[in-house]
Amino acid sequence: MYRFLLTPRWWGINVFVLLAIPFCVFMGSWQLSRFEGRVEDHRTATEQASSGRDEAARPLDSMLPVDKSTSGRRVTASGHYGKQLLVPGRELDGERGFYVLTLLRTDSGKALPVVRGWLPGTADSAKAPAPPTGVVTVTGALQASETPGDNGVSAQGGLPAGQTAAISSASLVNLVPDRLYDAWVTLDKGDAGMKAVPASAPTGTGLDLKAFQNLGYTGEWFVFAGFVVFMWFRLLRRELEFQRDAALGLVPEDSAGSAVSDPSADSDASAGSDDSGDSRRTPVPSG
Score class of each variant (00 low, 15 high):
109 G>V: 09
201 A>N: 00
179 R>I: 06
136 V>R: 00
69 S>A: 15
158 G>W: 01
175 L>D: 10
57 A>T: 07
175 L>M: 10
202 P>D: 05
198 P>K: 10
160 P>S: 06
135 V>M: 10
1 M>F: 15
230 F>L: 14
152 G>S: 03
46 T>S: 10
203 T>G: 04
134 G>P: 09
81 Y>D: 02
264 S>I: 02
24 C>K: 06
256 A>Q: 13
75 V>N: 11
263 P>G: 10
53 R>V: 13
200 S>N: 07
282 T>H: 13
213 Q>R: 08
70 T>Y: 11
213 Q>K: 11
236 L>Q: 13
251 V>K: 12
28 G>T: 10
13 I>G: 01
91 E>K: 09
126 A>Q: 14
126 A>D: 15
166 A>E: 07
39 V>D: 01
259 A>K: 08
58 R>Y: 01
150 D>M: 10
149 G>L: 06
164 T>F: 00
279 S>M: 12
130 A>M: 07
209 L>A: 15
120 P>W: 08
285 P>T: 08
262 D>P: 01
241 E>T: 14
205 T>I: 00
162 G>C: 04
280 R>I: 05
232 W>H: 12
60 L>D: 03
259 A>T: 04
228 V>Y: 09
87 V>T: 05
204 G>V: 02
208 D>I: 08
283 P>Q: 07
123 A>T: 08
131 P>H: 08
141 A>V: 02
62 S>K: 13
33 S>T: 09
61 D>M: 10
47 E>Q: 02
232 W>S: 04
